[in-house]
Design a protein around this nucleic acid. Structure first.
Lengths: 154, 154
DNA sequence: ATAAATCCTACTCTGTTAGTAGGAATATGT
DNA sequence: ACATATTCCTACTAACAGAGTAGGATTTAT
């Protein structure tokens, strides 16, 4: 799996915060309860988001977290990169120019680099706002029969 | 990582076989030596490719493997799918319609589905032949400064 | 003071990854 | 017939990453 629960839950937390903006600071226990996730685990995840400058936090009673920017100003790539460390689909693609020693002659490297680029391109084009507004066209393209089709009354 | 050494080496094996077509059957020890990979490990990987109908094999002396089709008739997606089992970037995207129980109300699911589609789309558009001919435009798009730039004499 | 919250460090359990080991079956050349 | 080179098959293992748990220290509103 390229994206573990860490990144997935991080995004869930960001979406939850975006949805509950305006209520001031939102406590982690509220988020955990709403999203049905372990609060203890979310603690370690939200700590990464906070240290990475994605959030503002307030300690003590009535404290909690809120977004540091507006939902439209977060792209999904940066959220996942921060929490996952990397989004590279293979081990031989590193960040910051670190390369496999066979790189110079490796004929499959361009494929992996291209895949990495495709993933990065997709995720950086989508914002937190796209998710909360359910911008399916942007996320799924023009056609998507298979994904969450309209429900029919039986 | 979405693609482990298993899938990566499988592709390497396929590329090696494509390059050495015409020599009849190619032995695994030759491949392992050329690619500098553990023969014992490759054994288990090539066995998956073989059982999946990607290869033809011949036992005994002078035996080995060769491609079952022409390089242009393999796309990368099918090779990786066979060896990795799935290419889904997250655990909550399953094949064959198996779904997370929160799927109906999950606001991030369309994102993951879209990402999955983007990955699948990219990988199924590229063939084994594209790799052996080094079709960089198809793999990397029109621009790629960062990936394996021309070498300059110093 | 007390309660409610963030913050911090350390631990554990489980499954997956990346192989290794040893041998059985099969085909070829001499 | 026999030695050799190959695929084929089952089982095992060491190391790492993922997914949390546990326990408490610190901070702030009331």
């Amino acid at each position: 799996m390229m994206v573990s629960t860490k990144g997935r839950y991080a995004l869930t937390v960001m979406v939850d915060l975006a949805r509950n903006e305006g209520d001031g600071y939102v406590s982690l226990s509220d988020i955990a309860e709403r999203e049905k996730l372990s609060m203890k685990y979310l603690e370690s995840i939200i700590s990464i988001l906070n240290k990475g400058g994605m959030l503002m936090s307030l300690r003590g009673k009535n404290g909690g977290y809120k977004l540091a920017r507006e939902p439209k100003d977060y792209n999904i790539s940066e959220i996942l990169l921060l929490t996952e460390g990397t989004l590279a689909p293979v081990n031989c693609i590193m960040q910051e120019g670190v390369q496999c020693e066979k790189a110079a002659t490796c004929s499959t490297l361009p494929l992996w680099a291209g895949l990495d680029k495709a993933i990065e391109g997709y995720l950086s084009a989508i914002t937190l706002e796209d998710i909360i507004t359910g911008n399916r066209k942007k996320m799924l393209g023009d056609y998507c029969e298979s994904c969450a089709p309209e429900e029919k009354a039986e």
